[in-house]
Design a protein around this nucleic acid. Structure first.
Lengths: 201, 201
DNA sequence: CAACTCATGTAATGAGTTACATGATTGT
DNA sequence: ACAATCATGTAACTCATTACATGAGTTG
């Protein structure tokens, strides 16, 4: 084959190809799967997904089968092409480009010295609760996945293996976040109990 | 005071105000502080910082003192105004809006079943090494901070307290990431040793 | 004298969010 | 009758990255 124009696929494009590698899906299905807080640690709305599907189609990485849709547009069920599979497979194991860190809670934490301690406590207690809830949800999913799939969760060729691996990352992340929030709460509570001695500076 | 037009500040704006609350800085200084991988868990380049400073200036949240600069433009050292301090203080303890999750490594992990196991092992070993290095750097910073500041790291009114809290978040994050990568490596190594039995599916 | 640091500014591009637009079917 | 779900498409906007532009002083 002649070396064609190198096809540039965005990260969202790979997120879509990764889902289509498992099963054919419509844009609507993809939007549902990529909605927070499910989604394979990537999120997108339909306003971004439909144009991206058109780009993938133009590059020959996906095809679709159209049927009459409920609205004015036909419903399109997308399938990954061999070319799409190839480009996805090589992308998966390439090193990810380092993403810039952008974490609003930690940014707020960096200015915590500037804030009222009681208000800071409220903030971190609320955050800790959020993380505890998310952790509980993930743990429940883990229990049901382990019961359902058993040993096949250890087989790297299985889709459920990949899903389990990302779930365990989520559990690990929430555990870390919850631990940090609770540690900050402890520090703030201690300082509240023994307030800043006015004599020393 | 009459209720003026509500001033809308972007997250980057708060990142800048948070740094200016500690000491006056030029746009160049801010760019250096907000560069990866330092920066208070927020990153930005000068191409974004300079226009943002102009907006903060127009809203009266910062002022500057100009001196002759090395290039064609005057050097400007920015200072936070009382109005800027007020808006920063109230922002710090407001709950952060939930940020969409976008993690390229975990996205790759979600398609790991589709990839070559040996290549996947290379990917995760490289990632584990990156995190181990970052963790070592953070731990060294922690040691020097604890030696330098001692008990004042427990006083919430101190800038070094806030810095320490974000550092501990970084340490906790890298520990979580490293643990997860190593766990994935173990799974992949086991599967490599006892390959998929061809009889079962 | 070349490369690096200091120091700001703008423009083009890309990525992501939100809102507008249309319209059938199904459940309350 | 009204809301929710299914289903796609486009436009306006914000946010972020990268590149272009200028130019002095310092270090090797």
């Amino acid at each position: 084959m002649a070396p064609t124009t190198p096809v540039r696929v965005s990260t969202l494009g790979y997120a879509i190809l990764g889902l289509l590698a498992r099963e054919p899906l419509s844009g609507y299905d993809l939007a549902a799967l990529l909605k927070m807080p499910v989604g394979y640690y990537w999120t997108a709305q339909h306003g971004q997904i439909h144009p991206e599907l058109q780009r993938l189609l133009a590059d020959g990485l996906v095809t679709y089968q159209a049927t009459r849709g409920p609205g004015p547009h036909p419903k399109k069920v997308y399938t990954i092409t061999p070319s799409g599979s190839r480009i996805l497979r090589s992308w998966v194991t390439e090193p990810p480009r380092p993403r810039p860190v952008r974490d609003e809670l930690v940014l707020k934490a960096a200015s915590l010295w500037f804030a009222d301690t009681a208000a800071a406590l409220r903030l971190f207690r609320a955050e800790a609760e959020r993380h505890a809830e998310q952790l509980a949800t993930y743990e429940a999913t883990r229990t049901s996945m382990e019961a359902r799939y058993g040993a096949s969760l250890q087989r790297p060729g299985r889709p459920e293996f990949a899903e389990y691996v990302t779930l365990r990352c989520g559990i690990s992340y929430e555990t870390h976040r919850l631990g940090w929030c609770r540690w900050v709460i402890e520090l703030l509570e201690q300082a509240d109990a023994w307030p800043e001695p006015p004599g020393r500076r």
